[in-house]
Write a protein that binds this DNA or RNA. Structure first.
Lengths: 132, 132
DNA sequence: CTTTTTGCAAACCCTTTGCAAGACA
DNA sequence: TGTCTTGCAAAGGGTTTGCAAAAAG
């Protein structure tokens, strides 16, 4: 039973593709709603969830913050700026062997990991230099 | 100005030490409140926050879930069971050089990282075997 | 015609906050 | 005393859900 191809689904997916820098569901909703005022927030949340469940888009879970969505689906890591909240990609090789190490160390059957960096983005570094 | 040594603070810290397996703030509150019904939830949240800010206890931020607190303060990684939500330690060596690699790759000034594993805990593996 | 999806609003979880009363130093 | 902390209840951010109506297949 493939997902139904509704107008909302198309609009949401296209809008996500048009947005850069890992929008939150709310940001996607704002953009969608600006062009299509009849599309509700619950639909955006539900549809983003379905799209990421089926692997069409990516979902980036952020510690202590709203989830972010990504039209790119290959897995990669992210940094979040602790000053402004911006999220960017970190294109380093995926950690290959930690999952096995974690499995051995914990007894869990590991199905994946999330690695999130925290730091200060270039813009905030520039603005905040005088403060140390 | 050191923190004031209130009864609540002592109770909360002791209760956390008595609880195993990374309780959430709410779980700490339940335990605290059972013995000291007058201690309110806001106090538990505030106090756990202060204790972790000052480094007396550890805070584990969980993707899509309540924060968990830990009386152990040395940093280590965690796994979460995707079936039952249980959180356990993963005692593998800390990743030493990823932060520099991430800094180089992103331009951020990296101040740390969070690595969370997802998996199935031994108990759930046993219960769920017949389901594949 | 059956089943999924939508839109709305209300509910939900986790956490923080405003404020006056109370406790600490 | 001066200031930090508490307790309460209300508010907040992010997300999910119940339900009837609408749309997809």
């Amino acid at each position: 039973m493939p997902a139904r191809n509704t107008v909302q689904r198309q609009v949401i997916e296209e809008t996500l593709r048009s947005l850069a820098n890992h929008p939150t569901a709310d940001e996607v909703y704002d953009a969608v709603h600006a062009e299509h005022p009849s599309i509700g927030k619950a639909t955006v949340y539900r549809t983003l969830g379905r799209l990421s469940d089926e692997g069409t888009i990516g979902r980036v879970r952020i510690n202590n913050g709203a989830d972010r969505f990504d039209h790119r689906t290959f897995s990669h890591y992210h940094v979040r700026c602790v000053r402004c909240g911006r999220v960017d990609d970190v294109m380093i090789p995926l950690l290959g062997d930690v999952d096995e190490a974690a499995a051995r160390a914990s007894g869990y059957q590991i199905c994946g990991h999330t690695l999130q960096f925290d730091g200060i983005c270039p813009a905030c570094q520039a603005c905040g230099e005088e403060r140390g």
